[in-house]
Design a protein around this nucleic acid. Structure first.
Lengths: 219, 219
DNA sequence: ATATTTTTTTAGTTTTGCCTAAACTTTTGC
DNA sequence: GCAAAAGTTTAGGCAAAACTAAAAAAATAT
């Protein structure tokens, strides 16, 4: 019983909203997928009939166990393909999302198993997001937002919260790449910007918006 | 101006038939795509309006220059992905066609350029078929069907005509893989089967059907 | 050369995924 | 607690790509 790409995209969107809110409201799904609430209402009915989610009129949607499995499998495929694009085809981390959105819909369990092995069973993708297991389990790392660091703490950049092209390109230009060492100096109260030292050499001031969207793991 | 996967599949089918017949009749396209002549008639009208092919009612179709470019680009993508699946992900040559049928529709010129480089700019795919250049040019090799060899001639297997899973698996079992050395001993008149020696060691008799579907390049 | 067969096109439906407009619930503000 | 606002569903349609059945054109066979 295969799903269409559209159905798969709904499951992924609902999963994402659920992680955030516990529940997925129709309007939120519509916003996430850039479509109308009416279309979402139609599709939800369909997915509910296929037992991929639980739904009561006017009450929002929640993925069923089966729906969750599909969604995490899609996220797994997406992140493995992103890893492939960066590690093997020399793409930059700001160019890969759109391509992986297409690749994730390719139907072949063996393809994904072989790809995983070829990549050396990576645990995190090029944005530092965890790659779920086949069973839908996500590795959890003790990471915090850079903006939450305390003076003199030291850590390493392990991920980003925001994934937009412009943000990722900005980080590249600033040398704020995954693995970079960050020493936190201080926070400036007037605009909540922070001063850090990158790789023991570059002293930088980062705006609140930037520091909130970078994840670090403390040493 | 992007095409749907369906439109792309029509272009590929028409290209294939044209290579064989010079012209693509509506019924032939329907047979190739396992669909009805009525559906083909509709789609041809659409592709004709997009100037991807030339079409006159009841006269069959021929790709335009633009249509041919699209078709060869699809074949290029298909064969590069097949090469990837075999060379990098350890698939067997009988498992790759269906997956490549999906992968070939991914829209990203850069993806294909990088993949090509990653694979070392291969000229032939795992079935021995030439991978066209970006400009749609096919390498031509002086190859003949094994069934056309003359006694005592020696050559190497470079490709197959038939691509079915059963045939490819049969060839594997017989050690008739790309690169194998073939010495032609004789043809038996009563059933046109042939006797060959593979890699200087295995004497084998091949049926007419098998020998016709293997391409060799003479030494 | 005309009648039959084959091929192709047209006409009318179906399904999927989307839309807008209108109707209906639920939530919120006073 | 009730009216306005916000959120959601229903109704009615549209476009793409398929289908079947029927009509029309081309090819063929006697």
């Amino acid at each position: 019983m295969g799903l269409t790409s559209t159905e798969e995209n709904y499951l992924k969107a609902i999963f994402k909203i659920q992680e955030r809110n516990g529940q997925a409201a129709t309007n939120e799904i519509a916003a996430e997928l850039q479509t109308s609430a009416a279309s979402v209402s139609d599709m939800i009915k369909k997915l509910s009939q296929k037992d991929l989610l639980h739904y009561e009129k006017y009450k929002g949607s929640q993925l069923s166990e089966q729906g969750r499995r599909f969604a995490t499998s899609l996220i797994r495929k997406h992140r493995l393909w992103e890893s492939f694009l960066v590690e093997k085809l020399n793409f930059n981390w700001d160019e890969i999302h759109v391509i992986a959105e297409e690749l994730e819909h390719i139907k072949s369990p063996k393809l994904i198993r072989q790809l995983d092995a070829f990549l050396g069973f990576p645990k995190y993708d090029p944005h530092g997001d965890p790659i779920p297991t086949e069973e839908g389990h996500f590795h959890q790392r003790k990471q915090i937002q850079l903006s939450r660091m305390k003076p003199s703490e030291i850590g390493a950049i392990v991920g980003v919260k925001e994934h937009s092209t412009t943000f990722l390109q900005f980080l590249d230009q600033q040398g704020l790449v995954l693995g970079a060492r960050v020493q936190f100096n201080k926070q400036f109260d007037f605009d909540e910007s922070v001063e850090v030292v990158i790789n023991d050499t570059d002293r930088k001031t980062l705006s609140k918006k930037v520091s909130e969207n970078i994840y670090v793991q403390l040493n």
